[in-house]
Design a protein around this nucleic acid. Sequence first.
DNA 1: TCTACTTTGTTGTCAATGACAACATTGGCT
DNA 2: AGCCAATGTTGTCATTGACAACAAAGTAGA
Lengths: 210, 210
Amino acid sequence: MTDQPYHHGKLREALLERAMETIEEAGVDGLSLRQLARDVNVSHGAPAKHFRDKQALIDAVALAGFQSMNRLIRDATQSGDDLRGRFVRVGKAYVDFAVEHPALLTVMYSTKHHPDSSEELRNTGAQGIHVAQAMIAEAQEAGVLADGDPGTLAMVCFVSLHGTALLAAGGHLDGTSVEDVVTATTDTLWAGMAAGVPAAQLASTTQLSS
Amino acid sequence: MTDQPYHHGKLREALLERAMETIEEAGVDGLSLRQLARDVNVSHGAPAKHFRDKQALIDAVALAGFQSMNRLIRDATQSGDDLRGRFVRVGKAYVDFAVEHPALLTVMYSTKHHPDSSEELRNTGAQGIHVAQAMIAEAQEAGVLADGDPGTLAMVCFVSLHGTALLAAGGHLDGTSVEDVVTATTDTLWAGMAAGVPAAQLASTTQLSS
DNA sequence: TCTACTTTGTTGTCAATGACAACATTGGCT
DNA sequence: AGCCAATGTTGTCATTGACAACAAAGTAGA
């Protein structure tokens, strides 16, 4: 047993890493600052020097989660497929991340939802939408998709995939497989955006627009 | 000060009601069994006689939430509109509920997600999908929607609306209004299901089906 | 090198919490 | 009346998050 030096040196990183492990194993409720301190062989007061309080630690975990997720999404956009293929791959990347890190995803969004979330966290979390919006705008210019506000359509795709990701992560897809739901979702969305909204349908949605 | 009778009489109902209020005001993390007992003027040990532990109370809250939500959804299906109109109304009903009870919705699904959720809770929570599935099947038979497995398509609609509901409840829709996102989502989904998935698109999704 | 000063970690303490056990009261049933 | 299960109370315990006082270690300037 070599006795520990007074200074841990990389306490912040060690805490973050261990916190992510704990969250993935036991959920956010299973995270205890004191247990965390024990896990990394440090006194129960030490974490406070790096994270003001428990929420600050959770925020940091969420931020790290968004960063690694954004990386996966960006990678997915760079495949050589056609527009629709890239669209599907981005959706799959998102859902795959969710399925592999279900508890982390919950933390990421419940944290972003928190009333006093940091600017950085919100920006990092919104990056996925921008990717979708760019793809949709590009497809519209290419004539592959019908006209329509890219911002709203991107939001539609985002919320749909987010729902898929959350329910897939929680195992709420009952009978249907994750793979089936993701492809069906992206296919349906793409088909809907390609077809556009017929005028007959718009009638009931434009009542208040005058 | 009339001294309280020894028996509260309706403790369980009182606890449930107050718990729902607390959750909507302060989220699940703001719920404390002891504070709850204080709120209804009862000793800190009393709640244990009605709910084995804190999770059991939360489960009961979630179940009540699903029941009132299902009522709203069923009501929405009984409007006299055409098929597409009813579809949109169901979506709106779901999202409206989420926006009005954001914290409750979070509890409902994080509870259903819990590994040892009760059979009753899971069944009650899945009811919304069955409604969607019935509507889609009916529309397919009427020739309004293209063919496709109603179960999978219902799941697609459900996850999409679920995502909309969650993000709307959390205020994550950034620029776009809730109303816009809901109508755009239901419109896009319906258009996609009406158009069906072109064979050219299916090519990339049927690679593993042989 | 000596000396402030800051950062990082430790120890001690506090109120709040969830869970549990022992006990008290109530109302129903025979 | 007398038993008994359901309901509520009181007391207690370990755990937790937060805070304050203190200690050690690195850092920068004389």
